[in-house]
């Protein structure tokens, strides 16, 4: 296979993909983030010891929870949109509307999760 890209970083960053491109990038970053963090979490839990406890203590901190909840919840909600549109291709006509619905579902749910994480951290 001899595929080459020949797209400079500056040109890639200037690409105006709009809403669909933003969800594509966030889905990839979220997926890679989850794969990395869950792998380390499993490894830390498997190995145990001081190092394992140290890593899992970081994972249980409220700051990290806000971070990982963004990845997991966005990836899950965006993934459902992708799955439904891919399995029912006629819906592709409405993918921009579906992205707005997706944000409309994600933002309140994520805000509620952040609120409950922060209030629990403050002892509420």
């Amino acid at each position: 296979m001899s595929m080459t890209r020949n797209v400079s970083l500056a040109r890639a960053l200037g690409y105006k993909g709009g809403g669909p491109m933003l969800t594509f990038i966030l889905h990839r970053i979220g997926g890679m983030g989850m794969a990395t963090f869950i792998s380390i979490h499993v490894l830390a839990s498997f190995l145990g010891g001081d190092a394992g406890r140290f890593i899992n203590d970081i994972y249980e901190s409220w700051v990290f929870q806000i971070f990982i909840f963004f990845f997991v919840m966005f990836h899950a909600i965006n993934g459902l949109r992708i799955t439904l549109i891919d399995l029912f291709p006629d819906l592709l006509e409405y993918q921009r509307e579906a992205i707005w619905v997706e944000w409309g579902v994600f933002l309140p749910l994520y805000s509620f999760a952040v609120y409950s994480i922060v209030t629990a951290a403050l002892g509420g």
């Binding site: 839990s45 909840f69 999760a113 609120y115 409950s116 629990a120």
Partner: peptide, 15 residues
């Protein structure tokens, strides 16, 4: 709370 329930549902591990 809501986040605890989400954390459980994402992986039903007692920890």
């Amino acid at each position: 709370n809501f986040a605890d329930v989400m954390r459980w549902a994402f992986t039903t591990n007692v920890t």
